[in-house]
Design a protein around this nucleic acid. Structure first.
Length: 590
RNA sequence: GGCCCGGUAGUUCAGUUGGUUAGAACGCCGCCCUGUCACGGCGGAGGUCGUGAGUUCGAGUCUCAUCCGGGUCGCCA
């Protein structure tokens, strides 16, 4: 039977014990016991740090004997006198002091944990996730969760100070099968009907603007039933906001203010504002991505004009068919990238849609070029010059439709930079603006909304709506940090007529509009201030600010790749009774 | 759904061309130790080699299937 803490009251945290305190009462988990025989040291840990407890020949016998039974991860409370250590441990905050224990309570014994609770645990993640409550005892994860809290706190402070009202929107909403898959929730009362968990509070926050709330914020839980990635969890949190009487500039300015404040407050880092901007078209042309990592160069060069009449059919045909030939250069990488390595890059490029990869590898006097035999010397020289490829460099070239060339080079650029280790530390924020409104879907042959159908086209693009869909750009913007999309937002359509027109252009029938968004569309008939907003990924910004590569490291109880949770083993089957009541029969998928 | 990588004591790993009794470090247990702090010393326990089938005289090792985990593509308005 464990002891109780009756009569003891904690007076300070382990990490905060100082010589100024005479007598302290601390509580925590046992990090380590060093039993020297008639001298025992116990490192006691709580969320603030570690403090050393000491027991020696002056310790009362019963207390000493109790200390001899203590094991790792026992939960203790100890009362004693603070004194200076004989030899100081400079590694820890409390390394100069120790507690000479007079009273010890073993509040809870502990089995030996399945892995050691140490900062630099090498234990595989699967096991750590199964025992997440033990993994979370580790200092790095505690620090991450606390930093995430600081970020959330800063967001609330900043937006409250700027006149935003925090409003909760419903978690059980109408399913609108657009974009990502919904998680659906069956209704017992309405047999055969379902709610959906929100993918974002999008529609509700727009309605709040129509309701005249003017400025809204919410730390909103969002759900998407899609496959996971290191930077994608099926449930996640957005710092979700919406503002009235604003245009793009007002929102960017508000968010820049937040970024600046956040980095100063949490990391004491100064972020220069205004943040750099790239249009979507520029970002794609220069970096092959709408979320470029701009911490390093290796920008994409278009060599279509040089090769459009060259002897190499692959290049000439690509240009003739309306595509392009473009390349990137890895400076000084010729030694690091062997032929074999380049073949691997080719394989990677094929895996993501390229038909092949042309290369120039310049180690010795003359460049080794995969398409050299099809080229006149002068053409090759012109290519080298255009790319800026010199001795010691490797150039990778892709020829195809732009829709293939740019993303493939963008992905290669990122992969090579990681492989070569040339990405410097830094916080490269930038805005991507002027996203295309429409996106052509090859499969269905239809034009879809790239962002969402409530996004406002740019004023100067309204004239092409019917004629040149690919030219229509939207008042939509993403905030990108080091190649990660942190935030996405737009100005919304507030004009009823225009919204109807956009729906028609997207091929939605009146019935479909009514069924999916009827209430929202109706709402705009009753007067709507111009408004727009954004959602900032709290998980992602926490991940980056904590210096982690996975959302799992900043999420208390994350899900794994197949969207299950290893600790609780969710999802699970439910009882026949539950299913009967809901009128649901489960059919096993083949 | 596709592709790639991984699964051997509690943990992290090693394990040769298929060959006797599967090793190490840490952790754990016991004994000793008065200044440790990754304490130290001595001793000990601990393994269905993810699971199942197959090839073989013989499988941790080879083959197939399957489960679990990771990465990635598709997907993520």
């Amino acid at each position: 039977m464990a002891e109780t803490m009756q009569g003891l009251k904690r007076t300070c945290y382990c990490g905060e014990v100082t010589l100024e305190q005479n007598e302290v009462v601390v509580g925590g988990f046992v990090q380590r016991v060093r039993d020297k025989g008639s001298l025992i040291f116990i490192d006691l840990r709580d969320k603030t740090g570690i403090v050393q407890l000491v027991f020696d020949e002056n310790t009362e016998k019963s207390v000493f004997e109790k200390a001899e039974t203590v094991r790792s991860e026992y939960v203790l409370m100890a009362k004693g006198e603070v004194r200076a250590r004989e030899s100081v441990n400079a590694e820890i905050k409390t390394g100069g002091v120790e507690i000479m224990v007079k009273e010890l309570r073993i509040l809870s014994k502990a089995q030996t944990p399945p892995f050691e609770i140490v900062s630099d645990s090498k234990t595989n993640e699967e096991l750590r996730l199964k025992y997440r409550y033990l993994d979370l005892r580790r200092e790095p994860l505690q620090r991450n969760l606390i930093m995430r809290h600081e970020i959330a706190k800063c967001a609330r402070e900043y937006f409250y100070e700027n006149g935003f009202t925090e409003i909760e929107t419903p978690m059980m909403i109408k399913s609108t099968p657009e974009g990502a898959r919904d998680y659906i929730v069956p209704s017992r009362i309405h047999n055969g009907k379902f709610y959906a968990l929100p993918q974002s509070p999008q529609i509700y926050k727009q309605l709040l603007m129509i309701a005249g709330m003017d400025r809204y914020i919410q730390l909103a839980r969002c759900f998407r039933d899609e496959d996971l990635r290191a930077d994608r969890q099926p449930e996640f949190t957005q710092i979700d906001l919406e503002m009235s009487f604003v245009d793009v500039e007002d929102i960017l300015e508000m968010l820049e203010g937040f970024v600046k404040r956040l980095y100063k407050q949490v990391l004491n880092v100064d972020i220069a504002t205004p943040l750099p901007r790239l249009t979507y078209a520029e970002a794609m042309n220069r970096y092959g991505s709408d979320k470029p990592d701009t911490r390093f160069g290796m920008e994409i060069t278009d060599i279509s004009d040089i090769v459009k009449n060259c002897g190499f059919g692959v290049f000439a045909d690509a240009v003739a068919n309306g595509g392009s030939v473009r390349g990137i250069v890895a400076k000084g990488a010729a030694a690091a990238l062997s032929r074999k390595e380049i073949d691997k890059q080719t394989e990677f490029a094929r895996g993501i849609g390229a038909k092949g990869l042309a290369y120039i590898r310049w180690v010795d006097d003359a460049p080794n070029c995969s398409f050299g035999k099809f080229m006149a010397e002068s053409e090759l020289e012109a290519i080298l010059k255009a790319l800026g490829c010199e001795k010691g460099d490797v150039a990778l070239i892709v020829a195809d439709k732009n829709k293939v060339v740019l993303p493939v080079l963008g992905a290669l650029r990122l992969k090579l930079a990681k492989q070569l280790g040339i990405i410097p530390e830094g916080w490269n924020f930038l805005w991507i603006t002027e996203f295309p409104f429409f996106e052509y879907d090859e499969e269905s042959g239809e034009w879809l909304a790239m962002h969402h159908p409530f996004t406002m086209p740019m004023d100067e693009c309204l004239e092409y709506l019917e004629t040149d869909k690919e030219k229509v750009r939207a008042k939509a913007y993403d905030l990108v940090l080091n190649g990660v999309e942190l935030s996405s937002g737009s100005i919304r359509i507030t004009d009823y007529e225009l919204q109807q027109r956009m729906f028609e252009l997207l091929g939605l029938t009146k019935e479909e509009i009514d069924a999916k968004f009827g209430f929202l569309v109706d709402a705009y008939k009753y007067g709507a201030p111009p408004h727009g907003g954004a959602g900032i990924g709290l998980d992602r910004i926490s991940m980056l600010m904590c210096g982690c590569d996975s959302l799992r490291d900043v999420t208390a109880f994350p899900k794994v790749q197949n969207a299950s949770e290893l600790m609780s083993e969710a999802p699970s089957v439910v009882s026949e009774e539950q299913l009967d009541e809901l009128g649901i029969a489960v059919v096993k998928k083949e």
